[in-house]
Design a protein around this nucleic acid. Structure first.
Lengths: 144, 144
DNA sequence: CTTTGCTCATTAGCTAAGCTAATTAGTGTG
DNA sequence: CACACTAATTAGCTTAGCTAATGAGCAAAG
């Protein structure tokens, strides 16, 4: 492939523009009443980890604490997340997904991501594989 | 690979979460005084196309016209985009990049995308190739 | 040649999602 | 016990998107 001849700076621009437009497109298809991408990602992290303090969740999600405070407030309003006092440190708050939160995640394929899954299903297996690998790489970059 | 055994709905979720976090991470590194991802993408589309009406640019960027009005206003403030009246239709506006706009795009590798390019440079050639292909696929999905 | 209806852009006003700075409450140590 | 540190929140700002309503211009039908 011609990748070796493409400077990384050009790839960076290409990748970012593609992801910018992709994101907008995906956001347009969000069904009302469902979780936003941000909320969904936070809830997923929380379920995976079991219990996290607000600060820990903010760190995992690569977001500042005040931002996470607000995201959690939204999730709490809808009963998807619950808070408990920290056993030894009164400042901290322990967050976990509620049964309702886990239920939403479990069945979210029903409505959420349906559009994207449909697009993915139209790709060749090789293309899907490329995207799967790309997702891993992007995740790694995001954590760095 | 195991892709065949991964349902597309699961890949959809994986991909969207990865891209959500990736986007946040990239946005954090934006140097002040530079273009935002949105502005950058719009300006790039405009330069590639030469001339576009506001509505056309909105469509290319997958954004509603009012949103594009505002993006263009920002770019115009900074002298990166210019508008001309449409020769035959007084309602439409024709947009094009100015010399300053083209100059910014040409040299934007200097500051912009530097962080991402650095991360990309640390990857293996195969991984970069994967991302390049993924960018094409994502772009295609975004346009569908 | 005027009215009527359509289209393009803009304005107005809303929401989500991020940030920093400042505040509050709680911990822990000298 | 006072003082410094830390966790979360509040306050206020920015960006980026949306829809609905408005205004301006075009085009076609009477």
């Amino acid at each position: 492939m011609a990748t070796d001849r493409m400077p990384t700076i050009q790839l960076a621009t290409l990748l970012r523009d593609a992801i910018t437009r992709f994101n907008r497109r995906v956001r347009q298809t969000r069904p009302m009443g469902e979780l936003t991408a941000t909320q969904c990602s936070a809830l997923t992290s929380l379920e995976l980890a079991g219990q996290l303090t607000l600060g820990e969740l903010a760190e995992v999600e690569r977001v500042q604490p005040p931002t996470m405070t607000r995201i959690v407030a939204k999730l709490e309003e809808r009963g998807l997340v619950q808070r408990q006092p920290h056993p030894t440190d009164g400042r901290q708050v322990i967050l976990s997904a509620t049964d309702a939160g886990r239920a939403i995640l479990a069945q979210r394929g029903q409505a959420r991501d349906e559009w994207l899954a449909q697009r993915l299903a139209e790709l060749s297996p090789e293309e899907r594989d490329t995207l799967r690998q790309a997702a891993e790489i992007l995740q790694r970059i995001a954590q760095s």
